[in-house]
Amino acid sequence: MSGLLGGIVFGLVGGVAIALSTMVGVYGERKIAAKIQRRFGPQETGPYGLLQLPADTLKMILKEDITPRQADARIFKIAPYFVFVPIAMGLVVIPVAAGWAALDSSIGILFFLAVPSLSVLGILIAGWSSGNTYATIGGMRGAAQMISYELPRTLSVLAVVILAGSLRPVDVVQAWRWWWIPLNFIGIVVYYISSIAELNRGPFDIPESESELVAGYFADYAGIRWGIFMMSEYGGMLAASLFGAAIFLGTLTWLPGPFGIITFLLGTGVIGSSMIWVKWTFPRMRPDQLMTTAWKVLTPLALVQLVIVGVVVPWL
């Protein structure tokens, strides 16, 4: 019974956290992009445009939920949840304080790498069930891209696992030492790039490239279902930034005891903002260039990192 109760409580807390992070993420993205482009960004609704996002959310909820006639309605309607739920599930294993994670699993890192990548299924069925050529191409591209970038991402995390000698995220945080950052530098870069690619964000946003595929796999979605796709994108960004800040940068241990959360959140913010910065600076890659980057650049680099760590570990 307590397990069920805990699950419900955690589900609520997690849901609110993702919704809030989406709002902060969207607001931050719009403000940062505006600064990059010499604009103001949202500033009319509320002070500094802070109420823009609640207003947008309200609009999205009230909007008509349209299902195209040629779509496979049942699958079309549940597809957004197939994208969102795995990404939200990935959040539970991330340690949010030194020595504490919501789900303190001994295979937490494996869980974090494996479960969110199930969202590729949601992208595929969303693209396919729309009954729209653009959406189908978008879904196919998304699947190809996510499966390809899975590999370098997992390999880059593996280096940290070897250093820590554990798959339990809490243990990794406790074992973290500052010299992991220079030692792991290639791995951090690979993790960062492949995380952006996993999220289908620019410059890797080819599944949803608005100038070729209009909006790719979610071209036909409207209202709150479209909003769920957006939430999964920002939820995924949150998860990737939190995980990177905790595991790779070890920000939880930068300050003693519970104060570690301050550096942890700051680190997460820096990683998230830099993802926004990258998106608004670079043009989009072509599908074949994207694949080349994954297989011919990032995967070998991650392997090199693995070798470096493998050589160093016996000497520790």
Partner: peptide, 10 residues
């Protein structure tokens, strides 16, 4: 067209 929104604004 290639997704570089900033160049467009500049």
């Amino acid at each position: 067209d290639t997704g570089a929104a900033t160049m467009f604004i500049y």
